[in-house]
């Protein structure tokens, strides 16, 4: 199958920091690639290199068959970019922001206005169209930002942490917008810190850490690698901890971990949770917490790298440091 985006051995250094240390990746046409990693892993740098905003120090990459260095202008005609920070002109209205992009892309004024109207209506911003963007909420800004990257109907969309900082409702709205774009045939490169998000949107996931690709696969393959879900139980009365530990240990056939007054254990069998509930009920143990959750990014990292995801600041070296 053909690749809309292809990167081979990308290296990018900022002074002493190596943000990308030989990154290879491929995104098949019409699919979503999730670039997953903690802060500082090199996600933003990778996107900026592929979007022609930064020149790589080594390696090659092509977007839509065009070389990102030698044919940057062609690449820019194919790609829509939505950065980590909603890059809209706060002093212009929503409509003016989209009109500006349309005009810059060479649309005649009436066509650019028409396109702005369509997008504002699609992104549920019609009522706010004539208000300055500085009055928008975070979710509205992100929607306007995404709309701005779609003015030219790009074949490819680069989304750099599109939902960071959004509340759950705004996040799920944005997810469904992205899904609709993909069903319209757009190829998406998405960076995220959330396994959940990559899982929800991506056909394939590339996990990067310290500028290197450490795992590649479908969400299911990746989850299979990182194994199970985690059961957590917190008894109301701490004196029940030994009993809870014993029950959880017996039913999950593992040695539970004790974190404060919470007992956690890995679970693979879906029958465990109801069994735990029954046994604790029979024993008259009241619990304040009883959860079963999927592997977190931290657990993915732990199992892939042997170290937890470091939450370093200054993601992607100097670019972010100087631009925030």
């Amino acid at each position: 199958m053909d690749h809309a985006i292809w990167a081979d051995g990308l290296v990018k250094r900022f002074g002493e920091t190596t943000a990308l240390d030989g990154v290879n990746l491929g995104v098949r046409t019409g699919t979503v690639l999730g670039l997953l990693g903690p802060n500082g892993a090199g996600k933003t740098t990778a996107v900026r290199v592929l979007a022609t905003l930064l020149r790589p120090d080594a390696g090659t990459a092509s977007v839509g068959g065009y070389d990102i260095e030698r044919q940057a202008h062609q690449v820019r005609q194919l790609v829509g970019l939505t950065g980590q920070y909603a890059a809209v002109d706060e002093m212009l209205t929503g409509a003016e922001n989209l009109l500006l992009i349309g005009r810059l892309l060479g649309m005649p004024r009436p066509a650019a206005k028409q396109r702005a109207r369509e997008l504002l209506s699609d992104f549920d911003l019609t009522d706010a169209a004539d208000r300055a963007a500085k009055t928008y909420s975070g979710g509205m800004r992100r929607r306007l930002d995404l709309a701005a990257s779609l003015v030219g109907r790009p074949q490819m969309l680069f989304l750099d942490e599109p939902t960071t900082g959004l509340d759950p409702r705004a996040r799920s709205e944005l997810w469904s917008l992205i899904r609709r774009l993909v069903s319209g045939g757009v190829t998406v490169l998405l960076t995220t810190q959330y396994l959940e998000e990559a899982d929800a949107l991506a056909d394939e996931i590339v996990v990067i850490d310290h500028g290197r690709v450490i795992a590649t696969g479908t969400p299911d393959e990746l989850k299979a690698k990182t194994g199970s879900q985690t059961l957590a139980v917190r008894p109301e009365d701490e004196s029940h901890l030994p009993l809870v530990t014993a029950v959880v240990g017996e039913l999950t056939k593992s040695t539970p971990e004790l974190q404060g007054s919470r007992v956690t254990a890995p679970v693979t069998d879906p029958a465990v949770l109801p069994a735990v509930v029954r046994r604790l009920d029979d024993a008259g143990v009241l619990v304040t917490e009883l959860t079963l959750r999927g592997a977190s990014l931290n657990e993915v990292f732990l199992s892939l790298t042997g170290h937890p995801a470091e939450d370093g600041d200054g993601d992607e070296g100097p670019t972010e440091g100087s631009l925030t």
Partner: peptide, 30 residues
Amino acid sequence: MTAAATTAPPPAELSPRVGLAEGLRQTMTL
């Protein structure tokens, strides 16, 4: 999302650079 989200067919030939007249028009827009 209806018509607005759909992708246009890929243009046959992408221009390799910005012409001067185009650049001036973009300057006016900015």
